[in-house]
């Protein structure tokens, strides 16, 4: 399960479960508030919400798109 890893005290930062009301539709779970970062960390992370922070891991220099 995606994670609570960035949030304190195992707070799950989204509604669970989602109950679909129809086929042929995409659903994004509503965010649920857990905590926010401090001033500097918010700006540097690009979000105040730990649950939404998903930093990019740079690809290997010798490899355009292989994920290594």
């Amino acid at each position: 399960m995606y994670s609570a890893k960035n949030c304190p005290s195992n707070c799950i930062p989204y509604q669970t479960p989602i109950e679909p009301s129809s086929l042929s539709r995409a659903y994004v779970p509503f965010q649920i508030y857990c905590s926010i970062y401090g001033e500097k960390q918010s700006l540097l992370s690009g979000t105040v919400f730990p649950g939404l922070y998903k930093p990019y891991v740079k690809k290997n220099e010798n490899c355009g798109n292989c994920g290594k």
Binding site: F30, Q31, Y33, I36, E39, S42, L43, V48
Partner: peptide, 29 residues
Amino acid sequence: NRLTMLDFMAVDLHLYLNTHPNDKEVIEK
């Protein structure tokens, strides 16, 4: 520097509140 940080927090909380208009805890923050 300080103003940029505070204004950014306001931007991100504002977007959250647009889709969670009844979240009192976040309105307070």
